[in-house]
Structure formats: structure tokens, C-alpha cells
Simulated assay, not measured.
Amino acid sequence: METIMVEILNQKAYKLLEDLADLNIIRLHEPAGSARTLVERKFGFAKYIIGRISDDFNEPLNEFTDYMP
């Protein structure tokens, strides 16, 4: 077995590693004395995450015409 040190830069990456650990593919060891803390989200935190919203985002979908009044 090989051991490597990884610096996690994104919360999604940590979730991915946790999923791999659940599958028994990897084993996670957190350094002693370190506690993983959640980042408090502030208003506007998704400003650079959401790339583009389609112009017809609020338009009704054709699949639901049978249910519309």
C-alpha cells in the first residue's frame, strides 16, 4: 500500500474522497488535532459557481401541458 498526502481545495473533493472511503477503496486519516469545520456561507457565495441560466428558465415545460389549467 502507498500513502500520499493530499491537500483538499474544494468541499466537493472531500465529499468524493468520503465516497471512496465508503467503498473501501481508500482510507482517510485526518491529522491529529485537526477538526474539519464547515464554512459559514455568506450571501452571494454562489455568484461564481453558477455559470449561466437559460433565457427560458421560468417558461413552462412541454412535458407538463396535461397538468396545466
Rank of each mutant, 00 (worst) to 15 (best):
K15W: 11
F43H: 07
Q11V: 14
A35S: 04
M1C: 01
G44I: 05
Y14E: 01
I25Y: 12
I26E: 02
M5L: 15
Y14G: 00
I8A: 05
N10K: 12
L16V: 07
Y67E: 11
K42S: 13
V6S: 00
F45S: 11
T3A: 05
Y14K: 01
I50L: 10
L61Q: 02
F45H: 14
I8D: 02
M68E: 15
E63P: 05
I25G: 00
Y67D: 08
F43Q: 09
M68C: 04
G51T: 08
A46W: 03
M1A: 07
L9V: 04
R27S: 09
R41K: 14
N24A: 06
Y48W: 08
S54D: 14
L28D: 03
R41Y: 15
Y48P: 00
G51M: 09
Y48A: 10
L9K: 10
K12F: 01
E2L: 10
A21Q: 15
N10H: 15
K42D: 14
V6W: 01
E2R: 14
Y48G: 08
N62K: 13
A13I: 01
P60F: 03
A21Y: 07
G44T: 03
D56A: 04
Y48S: 13
P69Y: 05
N10P: 01
L17R: 06
V39D: 12
V39W: 14
I50K: 04
P69Q: 08
F64G: 00
L38M: 04
L23Y: 13
L28Q: 06
E18W: 05
E18Y: 06
A21P: 04
V6I: 11
P69C: 04
I50H: 02
L61K: 04
V39Q: 15
D66L: 14
I8M: 03
I25C: 07
M1R: 07
G44L: 01
I4H: 00
P69T: 06
D55G: 05
A21E: 14
G44F: 01
L23D: 13
G33F: 08
A35N: 05
E7T: 13
D66A: 14
D22C: 00
V39P: 08
D56R: 04
R41Q: 15
L23P: 00
H29W: 04
H29R: 10
N62A: 15
H29F: 07
I49L: 14
P31Q: 03
L28P: 05
A13R: 01
V6A: 02
M5R: 15
I25A: 09
D22L: 10
L20T: 02
R41S: 14
K12I: 00
F43Y: 07
I8F: 06
I8E: 04
L16D: 12
Y14M: 11
L9R: 05
Y67A: 11
T37S: 02
L20N: 12
E40V: 12
E59I: 00
R52M: 02
